[in-house]
Design a protein around this nucleic acid. Structure first.
Lengths: 252, 252
DNA sequence: ACCTGAACACCGTTCAAGT
DNA sequence: ACCTGAACACCGTTCAAGT
């Protein structure tokens, strides 16, 4: 959505702001991204953005109807940047793994844009390009159409959802993050085996695993499941019996 | 975290507020849940909650240090409610599927609590009970300890992450949700096959699939991957060759 | 011992008025 | 044509003062 409010023809004749800045959708998106990268996701507000641009906050409403529309423009720019640096190899599984990690990193840095783009569709250029690219990887791998869409949907939502979640964790002050990890060591790792046998038996792994993002594991499980389905759907004769064994990645 | 600030011994002697309400942690959590259920997640603010309780907003800081601590108390209460209504059957896969759907529904209704409890650990009673229960299901199914923790982590984060995401979608006005679905029909479904072959080939499925939550599909793929790993890890002789075929659930 | 009231430092968004 | 300034209706949180 988020069409520009200023008609394109009027763009050249625009007068600069007090401080001499010429506003534009691209400049606003760029400045917003810089603001987030320098001061964190919470630093982005209409008022701060106005200040950073040297313009009155209210002038932004000429370019974006709501803050959400600005976030969608940011999201599309991020999709573009992610695709630009991604180099497919032709191995669908490795390619999706790489792309997933890149999307997750992008969502981690811009959680509000990630949440929005998970349930809103912009119809913008980069978004369309991403849909076409990912569907292409899946269909060339041999997934039937319905299956390709299903896996595309899960793949994208998983990267965005985990990214948004993990960013909240990363935004905590370092001391608070360490305090969280300490609860696993101090509370969970000390529960007696007679009342909590399963926690007691796995305490070592809980302490090691829980303070980290579950995204890489989630991504690998998704790709495993997809690979297994691909093997199942192939005609019996053509199905290589080794595929499953090699495709399941072993935990460290 | 979120220990109560009022020492428990002082709780009986507390004076009622102007309107005669006796504040307590339990009453605050209950009222907050009612507020969210009646008016949506955005309706919860310290000021509104104070109004609903008939107390000054600032009085809540006697029971919770920050809004986050209130959200964690809400999260633990929700975990308790989810576990209370869940009836395990002994079939690990069906049990986790049922629990996942329940957790997702809870996170959907209380996204802020879901996001928080995904990266913060409370050490509260219901949380511990949930960890013990889910690990128990996985270990009894035969997963080795490291694997059980890994899958536990992915399972919980997936339910919370997708729930938080889907709630944002559900919070949109109905007209806006329909407008989103229309973009898939009007923009994506009309892209020509020569420039966008993969979108064109799958347009029918995109239109049908994308406006809905990807959580059920994500959950089924996770359980499929877990079942496959279980089969792989078993000694060759004991591995039933049919397991994989029946465990892969076929798309509608 | 508990709660209030006022204050502080913020938000997003609208719209008449200015240049 | 574009931007500003003031206003509206909100936030979370702190702390001295009241009962």
């Amino acid at each position: 959505m988020s069409e520009r409010v200023v008609p394109p023809t009027a763009r050249q004749r625009r007068r600069p702001t007090k401080q001499g800045v010429v506003l534009s959708e691209a400049l606003i998106v760029e400045t917003a991204l810089r603001l987030i990268e320098e001061h964190g996701a919470d630093a982005l507000s209409v008022r701060r953005l106005g200040r950073a641009l040297g313009a009155d906050p209210s002038s932004l409403y000429r370019y974006f109807r709501h803050t959400d529309d600005l976030m969608l423009a940011i999201a599309d720019e991020l999709i573009g940047r992610t695709l630009r640096t991604w180099r497919p190899t032709g191995d669908w599984r490795a390619d999706l793994r790489d792309l997933g990690l890149r999307m997750h990193a992008g969502a981690l840095a811009h959680p509000r844009a990630a949440v929005l783009s998970s349930y809103r569709v912009t119809g913008r250029a980069y978004e369309i390009q991403a849909v076409e690219t990912i569907l292409g990887v899946l269909r060339r791998a041999g997934f039937p159409d319905a299956e390709a869409v299903r896996i595309y949907h899960v793949f994208v939502d998983q990267a965005l959802a985990h990214g948004a979640l993990d960013s909240a964790s990363l935004a905590m002050p370092k001391a608070a993050r360490e305090a969280e990890a300490a609860v696993w060591r101090a509370t969970y790792a000390r529960l007696p085996a007679d009342t909590h046998p399963h926690i007691a038996a796995t305490a070592r792994h809980l302490v090691a695993d829980m303070p980290h993002s579950s995204y890489p594991a989630a991504l690998d499980l998704l790709l495993s499941a997809a690979a297994a389905r691909l093997a199942e759907n192939r005609p019996r004769a053509a199905r290589p019996t080794v595929t499953l064994d090699t495709s399941v990645n072993t935990a460290p």
